[in-house]
């Protein structure tokens, strides 16, 4: 079969339709998102580093001035890891709700990717891994600014960064499941109103959840961010506890349930 190209471009049989475990195909999707991100890196970096400057000034320095210690640490050191976990959630969630929905419906990017050797499974996993990457970037920005303010100082705090990736995997998996079901972009607002925003307020970001009314305390226990915050805060203080293992297992359970569910539901939505 002759080539329509000449010279180096005509190299026959370049590339491969698949790869062991399909991991390389997932990474090709991830690389597309990375490239799109890098193209506008200056705006993205402003958000990733700029917002923490203000958030930490408000809650750490501002509110922290009036509050004494919580659980034996200064309020600024209490709230900073809470914000790291919360921003991991937001980083992953924005990317894989509104971002993914735009790519699916408005820009038809999913359609163009699925016309290549990439299948739904790799497309969804690529979105999830990219969502987790955004979580790590957002959390990393918060962590860097918190360290600059002196709100975190333990060396173990560096572990927040990879853990934020895990939090991101959980939230991206849940978000893509939601995206596979919503009839319109506006429905995503409901997801934010009913789940994401309450989670930010009730998951121990700003205060310990132990003294919440029973209902909210119970609700908080099923929210993934509660568990993410627990582990992140452990890394911040250097106080490791068995709780952190449980919390990690719960996040892994969220991933184990929602990542396959997102693939199945997305296939049902797209493949006709």
């Amino acid at each position: 079969m002759s080539s329509i190209f000449t010279g180096i471009a005509a190299t026959q049989g370049v590339g491969s339709p698949s790869s062991p475990l399909g991991l390389a195909l997932v990474m090709r999707v991830w690389l597309r998102h990375r490239d799109a991100f890098l193209r506008v890196w200056h705006t993205e970096a402003t958000g990733i580093l700029g917002e923490p400057v203000f958030a930490l000034a408000a809650f750490g320095a501002g509110l922290g001035f009036y509050l004494k210690t919580i659980e034996g640490v200064e309020y600024s050191s209490f709230v900073a890891p809470g914000l790291v976990a919360g921003y991991a959630m937001f980083g992953a969630t924005f990317e894989t709700t509104f971002g993914a929905y735009m790519r699916m419906m408005n820009h038809r990017t999913f359609e163009s990717i699925l016309a290549t050797p990439i299948t739904i499974r790799e497309l969804v996993l690529g979105e999830i891994v990219w969502g987790a990457t955004r979580a790590a970037l957002s959390a990393g920005g918060m962590l860097a600014i918190a360290a600059a303010y002196g709100f975190v100082s333990e060396p173990t705090a560096a572990l927040m960064f990879p853990f934020a990736f895990l939090i991101g995997l959980a939230f991206a998996s849940i978000s893509l499941t939601v995206v596979s079901l919503v009839p319109a972009m506006s429905t995503l607002n409901t997801y934010f109103t009913l789940f994401i925003a309450p989670m930010f307020f009730l998951s121990g970001t700003f205060f310990p959840i132990d003294n919440l009314p029973t209902f909210f305390k119970g609700y908080a226990q099923v929210l993934p961010l509660t568990h993410g915050t627990r582990v992140i805060r452990g890394f911040a203080t250097g106080d490791f506890s068995a709780d952190m293992i449980w919390a990690t297992l719960i996040l892994l359970a969220y991933i184990a349930v929602f990542a396959p569910l997102a693939i199945i539901l997305m296939r049902r939505r797209i493949v006709k």
Binding site: H107, R108, P117
Partner: peptide
């Protein structure tokens, strides 16, 4: 396809290069 699904996040040549990467083309 019938409807435009070019990637608005990339410029013209980059659209082609990103597409080629999905095929594993160096």
């Amino acid at each position: 396809p019938q409807e435009d699904n070019l990637d608005p996040d990339f410029r013209v040549r980059k659209n082609l290069e990103v597409h080629a990467r999905y095929f594993g083309i160096p």
